[in-house]
Amino acid sequence: MPFLGSVIPTFDPVSPQARSILDLTWVTVAILAVILAIVCGAVIVILLRFRGKPGDADPPAVHGHTKLEITWTAIPFAIVTLLFVLSLRTMGQIHPAAAPNQAPDVIVVGHQWWWEVRYPASGVITANEIHLPVGKDALIRLESADVIHDFWVPQLGPKQDAVPGHPNFLWLQPTAPGIYDGACAEFCGNAHAWMRLRVIAETPETFAAWTAAQARPPASQHTEQILKGGAIFQEQACVNCHRVAGMSDTANAAPDLTYVATRQTIGAGVMENSPENLARWLENPQAIKPQCNMPDFNLSEEEVAALVTFLWSLPNPTPPQGSLDHE
């Protein structure tokens, strides 16, 4: 279905999980379409054949027909039994055990209104964009920091709620490199619409390089503008909510910003990431993502520019020479 797939992501699966759901969907839809066709056909025949005219005598009274009624009870029952068995097979293929006996590859934590993404093995922490290697069946552990959220990337398969105090698990196995859009699917308050997420599936080599770059502590930079931005980041209390490795390691009330410059979007998908858009965001986040948790700090143009320079300088290609808080 190349055309359908280009517009309808669920018809263009890129994981075995999403593929098996789609296969099951086609079988189910085919069976149900026959039923719909029979009902519609019967209505059309009735409208054509049994229209009365004024003055017609009433037709003979028919009160029922037991054999017919038993037949049309038994057939639907057989159909749903078939669907049950087909569904059972698919569920077995894609549903992880309640608490799989292995460490998760990624821990995804839903927050109002963004996603915290942690890789326990490498220690990498990021937000809203999940990098995964192609071909590997990744075990995702879903948690929530506040209310119930729902993790959903249509092309990769089933959605799953992120429930506070009740971790859930999900297998994600992208089979082709690409960017796969997703979103929070459970209503979670004001900015639910802008709690989008992305899975970025990469070749194992690219993924390894990304992991290594993200795991590296940020380099120090000594231009005046960067230092000024760093100072504002501290003074304006950004550090209370946002994590920057080496600066505010434990903060997690808002998205990690360590390597925000390497991300594709800002504000959990509300706009494309660029220095200009980051500046617009900092000028007044409430105008970009209304009623999100970040207040308008009334930053001056100068402060915004310094903060953007600071945040944009963090993914520094030069080798680390000690982390920022040592300066």
Binding site: T10, A18, S20, I21, L24, T25, T28, L83, L86, S87, T90, M91, I94, D150, W152, P154, G157, P158, K159, Q160, A185, E186, F187
Partner: peptide
């Protein structure tokens, strides 16, 4: 059908 529901619920 549970797997279809996983895809389209909510």
């Amino acid at each position: 059908v549970v797997p279809i529901d996983w895809q389209v619920t909510d």
